[in-house]
Amino acid sequence: MVRLEKISKKFKNNHAGPERSFTALQDVSFDIQSGEIFGLIGSSGSGKSTIGKLLLGLISPDSGSVYYQNQSLDDVIQNRKGWYRGQCQAIFQDPKASLSPKMTIRELLREPLSLMPEIDSIDYEKHILNWLKKVKLDPAVLDRFPRQLSGGEAQRVCIVRALMRKPEFLICDEPTSGLDVSTEWEIINLIRQMQTQHNLCVLFMTHNLYLLPALADKIGIMHHGEMIESGTVNQVFRNPTKPFTKELVKNTLLNRNL
């Protein structure tokens, strides 16, 4: 469904220093099949978010190719941008920052529906209430502003906003990093549940390896812009080959007693 082939990306270095640019991604390749959850692990600055932006078509790679349903993403973005924006949705790290602060939740949830001509505006409220029920959100949130929601509630709103457009591919960029542990698992379970219900292809980016056994089918380890290891969760957890992965797995097992 989604395939990255030898993707490299450099950014201009805005900070003082001898280096004019820094490498965000170096020859990264992996693929995600339809209905599969791919977990991408790496510390901050390892290049995870850059992959997310590339897949959203917000930036282009310097070299290499990205394919969506066997078509070059560049061509898709150029010729069928509107269609792709419906196909590929994203949930970001800071849910409150992902929602326009001057809009109520009702306005925010009506927005994605306004991009779907097949839905009549008279039915917006019905659709919204139906989605709120699915993610167990109280309809009272509709008249609130993002700042008046808890982190968990705001992330549920973001999930609804993303899934309302009926995407086939969902990018989750550290969607639980600012949440407490119980809310974190609620969101993980919700994503899993939605993935099963809608047969989504999910790219789940995180720096917490312990989240992935319960969620991902395959995982990839990112380190300094390179994918140093990838495979099924069992493969990577049981037979890590790179020292960085071994350390990561060891610490995760120690901390979480997995």
């Binding site: 959203l56 917000l58 509107g82 924006r85 419906g86 590929c88 949705q89 994203a90 970001f92 790290q93 800071d94 920052a97 992902s98 929602l99 326009s100 602060p101 927005e111 994605p112 991009l115 973001c158 906003r161 993303a162 457009r165």
Partner: peptide, 10 residues
């Protein structure tokens, strides 16, 4: 971020 989210929305 909310602008990037709106862009990603379409």
């Amino acid at each position: 971020t909310f602008i990037m989210a709106a862009r990603a929305q379409g």
